[in-house]
Structures are given as C-alpha cells and as structure tokens.
Amino acid sequence: MVELTSSDFFLAALGGSLIGISAILMLYFIGRIAGICGITFSLLDSNEINKPWRWVFLLGLILGPMLVHQIYQLPIPDAPTDNIPLLILAGLITGFGTKLSNGCTSGHGVCGIARFSSRSIVATITFMLFGFISVYALKHLIGL
C-alpha cells in the first residue's frame, strides 16, 4: 500500500466535496448532470442545441487546475505513460465505451448513483471491476 499523509486524505475529501458541489450547481441551477462525457461528447453532435454552456463548463474545468497549481504551488503531476499505441488504444475505447454506456466516472459514478439510477450503479460497478482487471493485466501479467 502507498503510505498517505493526513494532508493527502484531507485534500482527497476536499477535492471530492468540491466535485459534489459542482454537480449541485449544475443540477440546481440549470438542471443538468455534471457528467464530463455527456457535456463533451454532445459537442461532436451537430444537432445539439444549447452548445455554449458546454464550452463554458469545459473552460472552467481546464482553468481550475491551472489556477490552483499556480496559486497554491501544488506540484504538477508526472506525465502519463509515453507508450503511444497504449495511449491511442486507451483513448479510443474510453471514448467509444463511455459514449456507448452514456457516462463515465462523473455522470454515472457521482451523479447517477445520487439519483439512485440502477443503470449508473451497474455501470459504476462494471467499469471499476474492469479497471482493476485492466491494471492487473497491464502491471502484473504484461509488465508494462
């Protein structure tokens, strides 16, 4: 197990709470689910109306980390893997899969469960389980 400090736990709980508050703002004020896949992938759909708000949300999503790393001198995370085929494969199946199942960690995992949606509960259990299997295969069987 990775040894975590109390500050790690505090920041994890605080960060999670902020994500929850973001979801409240979206639902209470504009009646939308704060699901990143739904917000992002609908931009690919030429028929989608009410587009500007999606761009505004994504702008905030990108600016938020920029600000917080700058202001609080929070270290920038290490780069992801530089294995290009792996990045492309992971990106393709993440995009295809989240579009097919209509949601990802935010839409199903945080918002869907809070609405007691049985689809979201099943989706969350499924992607968690396959995430564990995927990392097990990658790190312990293939050794990447």
Partner: peptide
C-alpha cells in the same frame, strides 16, 4: 461549476 470540478480533481 467547471472551475470547482477542475480544482477538485487537481487537489485530490
């Protein structure tokens, strides 16, 4: 909402 979401992800 976008800012809070992004900040939440970054600090956690």
């Amino acid at each position: 909402a976008g800012l809070l979401f992004g900040i939440g992800l970054a600090i956690s």
